[in-house]
Amino acid sequence: MNDALDVAVRLVIVFGLFLVLPLVVGQTEHKVMAHMQGRLGPMYAGGFHGWAQLVADGVKFAQKEDVVPKDADRRVFQLAPAVALLPYLLVLLAIPIGPGEGAVGQVIDAGIFFVLAVMGVGVLGSLMAGWASANKFSLLGGLRTAAQLLAYELPMLLAAASVAMAAGTVSLPGILNAFEWWWLPWQIVGAIVFFVAGLAELQRPPFDMPVADSEIIFGAYTEYTGLRFALFLLAEYAGIVVLCGLTTVLFLGGWHGPFGGDGLGWVWTLLKTAVLAFVVIWLRVTYPRLREDQLQKLAWTTLVPLALAQIALTGIVKVAIQ
């Protein structure tokens, strides 16, 4: 009974974080993007600086009619948002926020494989949506999504493999237990490759070719309305949280910080994740969208060789210090 209660409490906490953190990131994006463009952003909803804007948006989405196009493949079309969103919830379960068993939803032995595998599944949602919408723009968006995923999955995996080699384990808490501060410069190339590839996998600008609004309206999500559309958006922001959390755990030392003992570990994790989320928004505001050929070129001719070089470096250093 106690075990069941423990599991239930963990699930509720993770679910709560899953609902709250993406909204926080979304609101931060509203505000940061606005100020980077000399604007104020939302100011009214909720009273104080528009803090409840996304809640209001959610209410609006919930009120909208749920439209399924006549020629669409109904079941696949309706299932797609869930397929896009749920994997991120599962991944969040495996990210350790602090040291010890108490600070992770579920310790998973092959943690890296779990998170990368499940994140890859999330993209299936976009593909299903793109195909089932019976819309050429959606189909193009789905194609671009697939092409992007195929290109960027490899560098992401290679970069993660480099950390796993360094730590000698594929478990996320295990990696953090083995972390030393000098891993930061040692794995920095891998970190950048991982982060950039993750951004591309999330289809965040500047890698938002699959939803390029000036060309294909909103890619795979063109036909979606109401709550299902909101779920896709939530998936994107949950993806940001997950990607930043993962980069923190794999490359930035998670709960390790220059000061403050293990008790404050979770603060460090959240802080690093928040900084990375800010960087995600910052990159979105700064850079224009990459063209499809530039996207593929970046993945195959820059990120993959860099990731391989990182793996070689990791191997050499690992052998040297043994």
């Binding site: 940061v32 100020h35 980077m36 000399g38 104020l40 990159l283 505001v285 700064t286 850079y287």
Partner: peptide, 18 residues
Amino acid sequence: KGLAVTLRTMMKKTVTAQ
């Protein structure tokens, strides 16, 4: 440079007319 531009703009006063 691009990153610096956006960061600097963020620190500046906004021009929104309320």
